[in-house]
Structures are given as structure tokens and as C-alpha cells.
């Protein structure tokens, strides 16, 4: 299981004067490069305009990663949201409206986490 740090950077971009490397799918090569400015740039590439509702999930994902050292698949993410933010936001529909198509993957990418291993 290679950690994100071991992936070959294929795309480098200078963000706020610092070189940031991305892999071929647009995930950060080094998780430590993440900051909100980087998140905004990743989101723009993915055609997502980040609002407060997005940031809430992004920060929760980073908390999840900090707690479990794992990028969550959809279902555990929904369960975690239920625990942390309450039941109303704990649905795949809600996540799909914020992060279209593949929410767990897209939200992980914007949050600067490795690609979830176990999602399609």
C-alpha cells in the first residue's frame, strides 16, 4: 500500500510561491502541501465552487484522516458525518450535491488526502 508520498509527481504547480506536486489523477503527492489555497485550486480544476457547506465536509474529512489515517469510502464517511454533524447531512445524496459523481474520491482530493483505496 504505497503512501501518497511515494507516488511519482507528474504535475507541478506553484501555489503562493511554493511548488506543489500532484499525481496524474490530481491528488496531492505530499499531503503536507495542503492548505485552503491549495484546496481552492484543486476544487477549481474539478469545477467545484467551495462554499461553507463544502468546507465543513473538507474539514471533517481531514479530521477523519487524522483520527484513522485512512481516506474513507462513501459509507463510513456517511456514518462519520452522522456522528459528527448530525443525521440531516448524513446521506450520499447530500454529498453528491456538494461533490458530484464520486463524492468520497472528489472530496478526498480537495481535502488533500490520498485517494480512497476502496471506492470505485
Amino acid at each position: 500500500m504505497p503512501s501518497a508520498k511515494n507516488k511519482q509527481p507528474v504535475n507541478a504547480q506553484i501555489i503562493n510561491g511554493k511548488t506543489v506536486n500532484f499525481d496524474k489523477e490530481g491528488f496531492l503527492s505530499d499531503l503536507n502541501d495542503w492548505n485552503p489555497a491549495v484546496a481552492n485550486i484543486i476544487a477549481k480544476k474539478e469545477n467545484v465552487q467551495l462554499e461553507d457547506t463544502h468546507w465543513e465536509i473538507i474539514h471533517l474529512l481531514r479530521q477523519f484522516y487524522d483520527q484513522f489515517e485512512l481516506s474513507p469510502a462513501m459509507r463510513p464517511l456517511v456514518k462519520y458525518i452522522a456522528q459528527q454533524l448530525g443525521k440531516e447531512k448524513a446521506s450520499s445524496m447530500y454529498l453528491l450535491t456538494l461533490f458530484p459523481n464520486s463524492p468520497a474520491k472528489l472530496a478526498s482530493k480537495i481535502a488533500g488526502l490520498p485517494k480512497p483505496d476502496n471506492c470505485l
Binding site: 483520527q67 484513522f68 485512512l70 474513507p72 469510502a73 459509507r75 463510513p76 462519520y80
Partner: peptide, 9 residues
């Protein structure tokens, strides 16, 4: 830490 995620899965 990884093991503590089992319940969420």
C-alpha cells in the same frame, strides 16, 4: 488508528 475505523466500516 486504522483498526479503530473498523466499526465505521
Amino acid at each position: 488508528k486504522v483498526l479503530s475505523a473498523l466499526a465505521l466500516y
